[in-house]
Amino acid sequence: MLSFVCRRLFFAVILLFVVSAFTYVIFAALPSDPAALTCGKNCRPEVIAQNRVRLGYDKSIPEQYGNFLKGIVSGRTYGAGEGVHCPAPSLGYSFRKHQCVTDLITRTLPVTASVALGAFVLWMLIGIGLGTMAALKRGRWPDRLATGFSVIGISLPTFFIGLLGIMVFVIWTGLLPFPRYEGITADPAKWFMSLILPWFTLAVVSASSYIRLTRNGILEVMNEEFVRLGLAKGLKRRTLIVKYVMRAALLPIVTIAGLDFAALLGGAVITESVFSLPGMGKLSIMAVNDSDLSILVATTLVAATFIVIANALVDILYGFLDPRVRTY
């Protein structure tokens, strides 16, 4: 067991290296010149050339990547002479924002994590709850209701649901204040209020596919021979549903849920934009608009890291949950 976990984690680390290299190379291959972005519109070519040398953009890409990795391990000083020092782990320096990228990420990540975690809990509850209800009352009105909800949720774009939420709950009824993000440590009540709408917006979208997954999974397992044998043993319907059907039906959902959650941690771009939440998604969007490569490399890498970690955790968890895939 322990060796399985270690092996899985070891490969996760290798994978992270590969991902970081790819990310770096792809962004380095972009046609925009990072040196030209360091000074304003009326920049003279000499200044650009000077900056290029000072920032290390004149070196070969493998060398730049090496410096980037070194920065993660031991921190790095950007610019010549005095320069700016970003302590380890340094993911780069943004000349647009005049800030260390790591600082930008540590400031935006809690926002994104708050959004992701709440939405995740909500959508799992809604998705599995309605999905189970639909399966157990197949063909009757609860099923139609849940399936209808999921069709609408899948069809409507995220920004539309978000704007609809603002219109109904903030502007028309005034039930909620306009979402203005507040840190959880600063004011937990405000934090909660500001996140209700983003949570529901994200939850509705994701729950829709989970309703279908759960419903179809349960219906499929209900036709399994071993469920019939459980019934033939004399098990009560409720025991059968929970112990036999749900256990088997929810297993595949664990995998998808883990990856979906990790993807969300990389930034809920649309939701954060709609509700002006200062999260990683918003940071990425601004970086794209500004062609701020140093930030883009970092956010992409952080998002990828979450996916790789989640993937490894899901694999390990699956081994616990399903005796058939235990390889130890």
Binding site: L229, G230, K233, G234, Y244, R247, A248, P323, R324
Partner: peptide
């Protein structure tokens, strides 16, 4: 299961894998 018990056709799928 107590008064009337049943044996199924396909033993590969009749047992709960978990």
């Amino acid at each position: 299961g107590r008064e009337i018990a049943m044996i199924f056709q396909d033993p590969l799928s009749a047992l709960n894998p978990f």
